[in-house]
């Protein structure tokens, strides 16, 4: 039996629940992307938060926080096969218990660790590589990450840019995080950011040139030491695919 779900984490966990209490799953797929196979039946799972929270708690109790962390990050990755990697990992995990993450080389554990690590690495990268532009009414950042990492970035910026209003827009997935600095109270633990789906990329009337952007480009050029030039090393840290949204790789307006 193939389980089909709506693409949410709760949906995935509901499928895991059914795998144990309804019928063993051959595979779990996102409904929209599913290509029916000839001999395998499929079943569209209705996301049920009660069931999913039971699975969530089971992972916390019987495995560990570390496992949960790995699973969630793997879920955010772009790989089509991620649900089945998670399923295999959990099947082994519920048998082995919290020791599972020590078993790095097990064929059911390693793939999960691998894709989870790719996501954590990208999240960390974008904490630095995100660039806001000030358009007069709010700060706006665009990014095109490999994985669906928006929700992992939001807390960090809600903390440090607490009094600002900002939007972080994922160009690839047409998603955006919106944070309205005005509503956040000091000391309250509640997060005041939302993730919304966009119909089209955000556009607003072009602003005049931002002087700080020019200063930053100037700084970026001046800080490098010519006799140590090492573009290969630079590309390792800032792959070319990220550079479209990095203002420092645009030429200076007026070369001084």
């Amino acid at each position: 039996m193939d389980y089909l779900y709506d693409g949410s984490f709760d949906g995935l966990l509901t499928c895991i629940y059914h795998n144990y209490y309804l019928e063993k799953a051959d595979g779990i797929y996102v409904q929209e992307l599913y290509q029916p196979a000839l001999l395998i039946e499929s079943y569209s799972v209705v996301t049920n938060e009660q069931l999913s929270s039971r699975v969530y708690k089971a992972i916390e109790d019987k495995l560990s926080d570390e496992s949960l962390h790995h699973i969630y990050h793997a879920f955010l990755s772009k790989y089509v096969d991620r649900e089945n990697i998670i399923l295999k990992y959990l099947r082994l995990g519920f048998r082995m218990g919290p020791r599972i993450d020590s078993y790095h080389t097990h064929p059911d554990v390693q793939p999960l660790h691998k894709i989870a690590r790719k996501v954590t690495t990208e999240v960390h990268r974008f904490l630095g590589l995100l660039r806001f532009t000030d358009n007069g009414s709010f700060l706006h950042a665009r990014l095109a990450p490999d994985h669906n990492i928006l929700c992992m970035l939001a807390d960090h910026f809600a903390e440090r840019l607490r009094n600002e209003r900002w939007i972080i827009e994922d160009e690839k997935r047409n998603l955006a995080v919106i944070y309205d600095g005005m509503t956040r109270n000091r000391g309250s633990k509640q997060r005041h950011w939302y993730i919304i789906c966009l119909d089209a990329p955000l556009v607003y009337p072009a602003q005049g040139c931002d002087p700080y952007q020019e200063l930053w480009k100037l700084y970026f050029n001046r800080i490098s030491i010519e006799s140590r030039s090492n573009p290969k090393l630079q590309t390792q840290f800032v792959p070319l695919r990220y550079r479209g949204n990095l203002v420092e790789f645009e030429p200076l307006m007026n070369e001084t």
Binding site: L127, G128, E164, F220, P231, F237, V238
Partner: peptide
């Protein structure tokens, strides 16, 4: 350290923001 004022926080691991032409990080 969290944000105890108007702006800014720090992370234990540190964060690099850009890498210049010589491959050194700009934090």
């Amino acid at each position: 350290r969290g944000n105890m004022g108007k702006m800014g926080s720090t992370r234990e691991c540190g964060i690099c923001h850009a890498w210049s032409d010589d491959g050194r990080c700009i934090s």
